[in-house]
């Protein structure tokens, strides 16, 4: 690969939630800004832009990442998944999403999309976490509304009763 010049914009192509999309980015553009303002999706929420709050968490080539600590150009040629990939094509919520609804695991919803992506990756590795393990994993996200109670209940319920 040749050097990308700081003042130029480059095409960035990725498979985003199952669809190929292309936008343009300078080397310094953050993936969170690229997804929101260049591609126009609404599921990568910009929170702290220093990697602590987790609202912008997405999955890139199977790895969970902070959108604000990733450059758009780094995601060129990758597969990116956000919370918009979780419901079925015809708009049915997944069992995990339904569990959040049932247990009031969200209020303003701003942190929720990032948390769902962490869970998507994490539950793949550890499908039946203990509450302690789950809370440890969730400590990589900040939620200001729920006190985490509904989130923890939703995930434990889902892990217990999922048919997926």
């Amino acid at each position: 690969m040749s050097k990308l010049n700081k003042d130029a914009r480059y095409p960035v192509t990725m498979t985003l939630n199952g669809e190929e999309v292309t936008g343009h980015a300078e080397p310094r553009m953050l993936l969170s800004d690229f997804l929101t303002h260049e591609i126009g999706i609404t599921s990568c929420h910009v929170g702290c832009e220093h990697g602590v709050c987790g609202a912008c968490t997405v999955i890139v080539d199977g790895t969970v990442m902070r959108g604000c600590l990733t450059l758009a150009v780094q995601a060129d040629g990758t597969t990116v998944e956000t919370a918009e990939s979780l419901a079925s094509k015809d708009g049915k919520l997944s069992e995990l999403q339904l569990a959040f609804k049932k247990h009031h695991g969200l209020q303003c919803g701003y942190c929720t999309t990032g948390i769902l992506m962490s869970l998507t990756a994490y539950l793949e590795e550890n499908p039946k976490p203990t509450e302690e393990e789950l809370r440890d994993m969730l400590s990589g996200h900040l939620c200001r509304c729920t006190g985490y109670v509904g989130i923890v209940k939703a995930v434990l319920d889902y892990c217990e009763n999922s048919t997926e």
Binding site: T42, S43, L106, G109, T112, T113
Partner: peptide, 8 residues
């Protein structure tokens, strides 16, 4: 919740 959970 539905629209929020979908990220829409």
């Amino acid at each position: 919740d539905e629209i929020l959970l979908m990220g829409k």
